[in-house]
Design a protein around this nucleic acid. Structure first.
Lengths: 203, 203, 203, 203
DNA sequence: TATGAATGAGTCTTCATTCAT
DNA sequence: CATGAATGAAGACTCATTCAT
């Protein structure tokens, strides 16, 4: 008996998500996915070209969201913001990521921690690299606007700070936090980060 | 001509390291390791119980070093140190990790980024958890000694800060830094971190 | 919008021809044929019973032509022709095949070189066998008419000469020859063949 | 119970030969080969890298023989031979091939008729091409030595004659001939061929 | 007629590990 | 210790064909 097309796709994606989460991309078995989705193994290939494409399909929503974020960020003029209020910037950023995690918890976990062996295995690295470039550009413009600040941060430091964001997301997706815990974390993080940035930028 | 027992072990470990580094634990092939080590595949099993044990053997030096660090840390009385000199603490810690990376670059990379599928795949998580506990305990003692500081940091925040350390190590092992870059990074990191910690602990 | 019935058949046959040519019968994929013909895979089975039948359909024109040739040949009275003018016979035959190749190049290629695994994989062999029988009969009648000639050619020799024709056709379909090259070849072939036949038949 | 290494290799090669002969390279099944050779399917891969390599191994003897023939031919000075005795040349050549067939019947069948899909699928074509080049060169030198002969044979004609040889071999391997049949064929072929060549070369 | 879902056996190849010598 | 043979399950993926709608 045939099921609806949409149904099968959904089932496969759901079970693939589970399997990828449990065993990572490389360790996940197509057989297992098929079995759990109650679909003939070969039938999966009527819906997806291959394992990699299933993975991409699974993480595509969060991929789009992250991409959109980058574009938005490039368009917004954070530079105009007074540097001393960077608290606002940090706050906005962390809240964005908290929302992201709420929406795409599993997908983020896959993308950041379980993509080894897939075509997306370099996504994290590339994302950090791009964030680093943006960070460098951001500081340069700040320096132009506020010449008194310290703009001489090393590239590697910026890189590490970018990677920090990813590690924070990874943390968030790896734990179930109550709203209260979330709030605490956000405010603590902002205090910590604001002080750090102000100090190092001599602002 | 038979090779010395020690020689084979060493060769296997060396080639396993390469293979694990290149393809991760799951993707690494025993055949390839054997071929590159110029050892009969089955003979490997006279030296190691299985793939997992080779991996453990490969990363054992850094595992020991990390373990030692934890013990030392528990024994030392950082609490006696004046909190305002925490700059010294951070400095010591980061320098320790820099040294660690210099000694165990490859092993750390394996342990932190390539262990998926092995029995050590949870090491990172567990290490962070243990660090978190230590951090919490540390802050508690600080609070006892200096009642005026803020000791009410959320567990998740501490957790995130612990995980931060791991992400920094991951960064370090993933890049080839010159001594000058290393120095820059260390000093920048200390400025940033000291300011952050002082602020959030209200010290 | 539905296509005309004829259109689909045609498209399938065209694309099947391409696929068979490129990968041979066994290597050809129904999926690929369907995709290129822009027809639903299963819909093909409304027009053709199976892969084998498509193949047969593809080569059917040349099959018919070859069959017709055989019948004609049997009816014509080549025997009446003076044996010393066998040049005329060879000439006619080779020109016939040249025309055949011009009309059915691809189909001949399939039939002679790419039919492995299909129900027609033995066509070539059978065709040669039949040609051999005809050849033997032909020589026998010649002998009756011209008792002085040598009619004692071995069956295997006749067989080989029949197979030669096939190899010539295979050559022709495998190369793009200009008209000039074609003419040269025909005349060279006739000179060569006439001399050979005259000599061996002692005519 | 383990068998001798040599034994398994031999068994696999024997059964592979059968399977390739029956179904062609593409149609042959590794499972079937393994089953018939009474070897575990995966065990085959301890002896051969892959299907293609088994095929190559099977036909390697005849490959070597053909290669050697070409080298010898290039070294010998057939040109010095009086052209009118080309009967001798043809005779030598056909006898060589008859011997070849006696030794490598199955292997030749595979190489010439069943290699589709393997890495050797173009061998026949390449061999004919090389033979053609040699033929052209041969005629050129003849012309130099005997300026009165016709050296203006078209390339395609030479090509076809080279391919003729292959078709003869294919015929030979496809039939079981008695010695007597063989002898008849050889002498008939020589009569036919000699007359043809003499005529067309105007010698 | 047409579609897309479904099938089930099939493809070659690789896996980590064990056994027998 | 060392070897190479052996295993049996598993890997992803494709096949021609049929079924249900």
């Amino acid at each position: 008996m045939q099921k609806l097309k949409k149904d099968i796709r959904r089932q496969v994606i759901i079970q693939a998500k589970n399997e990828f989460t449990a065993k990572g991309f490389k360790g996940a078995s197509m057989r297992t996915i098929a079995k759990n989705a109650k679909v003939g193994l070969s039938n999966i290939y009527n819906y997806f070209k291959n394992k990699d494409e299933i993975f991409k399909e699974v993480v595509s929503p969060v991929l789009a969201a992250l991409e959109k974020r980058m574009e938005d960020h490039n368009n917004k003029q954070y530079i105009t913001t007074d540097v001393f209020t960077s608290e606002q910037y940090l706050s906005e950023m962390i809240n964005y990521f908290v929302d992201l995690v709420k929406h795409y918890k599993t997908e983020l976990k896959l993308l950041l921690l379980q993509s080894h062996g897939s075509e997306l295995e370099n996504f994290k690295k590339e994302y950090i690299d791009r964030s680093t470039e943006i960070g460098i550009e951001y500081i340069k413009r700040m320096k132009e606007k506020y010449p008194e600040i310290n703009g001489e941060l090393s590239k590697f430091f910026i890189h590490t700070m970018s990677s920090w964001w990813i590690s924070i997301i990874s943390e968030l997706v790896s734990h179930d936090l109550s709203d209260k815990e979330m709030e605490s974390f956000v405010s603590e993080f902002i205090i910590f980060g604001t002080a750090g940035w102000k100090k190092i930028m001599n602002a």
